[in-house]
Design a protein around this nucleic acid. Structure first.
Lengths: 196, 196
DNA sequence: GATGTAGTACTCTATGTGTAGTGGTTTGAA
DNA sequence: TTCAAACCACTACACATAGAGTACTACATC
């Protein structure tokens, strides 16, 4: 097992591209070698087996998907109102569109996790943290809406992104924009927050 | 190319199981043969190539996923109010949980459709029809909420189902139930339906 | 020159495709 | 009732491909 960390990271990032392009079953050592433009056999030397490769990719993918510190800090600035929140959600969609292979790879990982308990544990932990963080930031921001609002928004936007990536002709760009606006507005402003 | 329709259907349904279990890249003629318990080579004789197989599965999957006529008729009965609507959504989730391989197969097909234009066209058409039908039924029912409500609910519930199938430990059963309740309530009752 | 990694080369194995060929069954007409 | 054509299930095989794993050489660094 070789230990060069740059090379390992390059292999993992190559694996993300392979995942998005070829699907989970297409994520082989040889495909990673080819994608990373390293000699055949290299990935074999860096990961104990395919399960290990999947798990390491699962640990990495979220780092690439989340905004970097600068972007994140910028999103905390300015007036914290609904219009600003809506704007941030549009930015979120744009950011993901710019790294669509990452999002597709995450979807492949999710499906693969039905077969790999270790991978499932990694993903569950990461996504749980992400949701909790979003709920926390929202609470701090003083915006209207409760934790349920944030989770519902998370659900709706995720599927909207999935639609756009897998079936781009289903909704027009205009419809997507309107759906994002409506999602923020309606999730954040429940008529009555208690049970009806 | 052989034409026995029962056998073809059995092969397609076997393909759905294979898709859910092995993923899109694992959907090979041989795997279908094995799943359908027919001799190797049979699927080769029923489908021109893998692309054809994917397309035919894409045409079939929605028939298996949608409720049958009886269930559908029953859902139209009774009081058409928000409580009833919420109940229907819980039933929807239960129905999908009982045929989770079908839903997983559809997800695999969606991801595969990024590589197969024909399949993408089939899925886009089917899903477009499904959304339009839901919007239509909702309009007829006289329930509060507009087409956007229905689409937002569709988005949120789909991702919730995906979470439950791929990462079952992310939300507890109780949380899922509350999210369904909240989703129906908040989507259907926007504070102000107009902009701003 | 000791250590660790890059890169090469090779074997072994598994898997899948496509198709030719065989035998059985059904159908319909004489 | 018989026979032949058509169709289909099933078997078998030839061919191709791809991937895993590993041993080995070459190189760089300290």
């Amino acid at each position: 097992m070789r230990r060069n960390p740059e090379r390992r990271l390059a292999l993992i990032d190559a694996a993300i591209e392979v995942l998005a392009r070829e699907g989970a079953r297409g994520l082989t050592f040889r495909a990673v070698d080819a994608e990373a433009a390293v000699p055949p056999g290299t990935a074999s030397n860096y990961f104990a087996n395919r399960d290990d490769l999947f798990t390491q990719v699962g640990g990495r993918i979220y780092e690439r998907l989340l905004p970097d510190e600068a972007t994140f800090a910028r999103s905390r600035e300015g007036v914290q109102d609904e219009a600003r929140y809506t704007e941030l959600m549009h930015e979120l969609l744009a950011r993901i569109a710019a790294f669509d292979t990452g999002y597709l790879a995450l979807l492949e990982l999710r499906l693969e996790s039905t077969r790999r308990p270790e991978l499932r544990a990694v993903l569950t932990k990461r996504i749980r943290e992400d949701i909790d963080a979003n709920v926390g930031y929202h609470a701090e921001s003083g915006l209207p809406g409760d934790p349920t609002s944030v989770v519902l928004l998370y659900l709706a936007l995720n599927w909207l992104i999935l639609e756009r990536l897998t079936l781009p002709d289903l909704f027009t760009e205009e419809e997507v924009r309107e759906l994002v606006d409506a999602a923020v507005q309606r999730m954040m402003n429940p008529r009555g927050t208690g049970r009806g």
